[in-house]
Simulated scan of single mutants.
Amino acid sequence: MSSILDLEIFVRVADSGSISAAARALELTPAAASIALKRLETRLGIRLLARSTRSMRLTEEGRRYLDSVRIALGALAEGEQALRQHGEGLSGALQLAAPSDFGRNVLLPWLDDFKREHPNIQLQLLLNDRHADLFRETVDVALRFGVPSDSTLVALPILPAHRRVACASPDYLARHGTPRHPGELREHSALLYLRNGRPYNTWRFSREDETLEIEVHGDYFSDDGEVARRWALAGHGIAYKAWLDVAEDVRGGRLLTLFDDWHGESVPFNLLCPHRVQVSERVRVLQAFLQTRCAALSR
């Protein structure tokens, strides 16, 4: 077995690209850090790092091994923390990624309440509609709509099925008329979300045994879900949004839902974790908290 220090040195070098920087962070000499890396490579029988006089980078084997080492060190740290805080409140860092619109307008005030309940937890929040790579980025868990594209991820359910709704501002509907059937969306300006650089312009609706796929068009495109919501509030067109994102706007009368006798596309809402060993008590408590809040906001 490799020593924990050897593994920590490897992770530090991989993150900083420098043996000297890793040694300083761990209060070692560069020579001691270099020896530890060689010892680790010798035991494994592989090259983890490709070195030159000017640079250092991970080999393909090193990249694969780094993911496992992060998980192992994280599990050890979690176990040590559980022993230290036995009988005390939850503590430690919790790194969370979330969609931009839900994160800014719904999740942020909720996290204030969560922090009051667990004041010793250090929250780190990443808001971005680009899906964080949970195996490579400094993220413990991520909130995502839809079925995970990577079957190796652990999906902790928040809502098993959450639907999208078509919605627009009263001002837009007063100026352009209110469509009564999803097919009439073709005659309106759609606020389009860009997914992987391509517009998400096929909106799905169902009613009993009938399913419709409507191809929509518009002049407004964005890869940020919050921008589409703001455009809808400003009266620029009709948006197709997750109910959680617009629930408060609908309840406040700022947006109106359309086709309430039809159901928009339904997707799960999950808290994703890269590995089962990283489902800590902090993550479980956050999951339960979000389940309660989302259930209250859902309909």
Rank of each mutant, 00 (worst) to 15 (best):
P109T: 06
G103R: 03
R180T: 14
V267P: 02
E61V: 10
S55L: 10
R163A: 14
S169V: 01
H275R: 13
L66H: 00
V279D: 08
R24D: 12
L156D: 03
Q291R: 15
H188T: 05
I158E: 03
R43D: 09
L66I: 03
L143M: 14
S16D: 03
L28A: 07
T138S: 13
L258Y: 07
K115Y: 05
P170Q: 01
I238F: 06
S151G: 03
A50M: 01
A174W: 00
I35V: 13
R144P: 01
L48F: 09
T211C: 08
E265D: 15
L83M: 11
T211D: 12
S3E: 09
L44T: 04
Y220W: 06
G92V: 02
L111M: 14
A50W: 01
A242R: 04
D249P: 01
V11A: 04
S34L: 04
S68I: 12
A132D: 06
E60T: 13
T202Q: 14
I71N: 02
Y240S: 07
I9P: 09
R180C: 10
E213S: 15
S16H: 06
L40H: 04
G177V: 04
L297T: 04
G87H: 00
L83C: 03
L286F: 05
I158H: 04
R195H: 13
V147E: 15
D224Y: 02
L156Q: 12
L159H: 05
H263Y: 04
T178C: 13
E248A: 14
N105R: 15
Q291A: 05
L271Y: 11
L173V: 06
L185M: 13
T202L: 11
T152I: 01
S20L: 00
T59G: 10
G92S: 01
M56C: 08
Q291P: 03
L143Q: 04
C167G: 07
Y65C: 07
I121V: 14
T138W: 08
G183K: 07
S266A: 15
G183N: 14
L108N: 08
R63E: 14
T53S: 12
V277W: 07
R198H: 11
Q95G: 04
S2N: 11
L48E: 05
H181F: 12
I46T: 11
H275N: 15
L159K: 07
C294M: 11
T138H: 13
L94E: 06
L173T: 03
G252K: 01
L143K: 02
A23D: 02
L94C: 09
A247G: 07
A77P: 01
I35E: 11
R284N: 03
S222C: 09
V277C: 07
W262F: 15
G177I: 00
E248R: 12
A132M: 10
D150S: 12
Y65H: 13
I71Q: 04
R299M: 10
E281A: 12
D6L: 01
A25T: 00
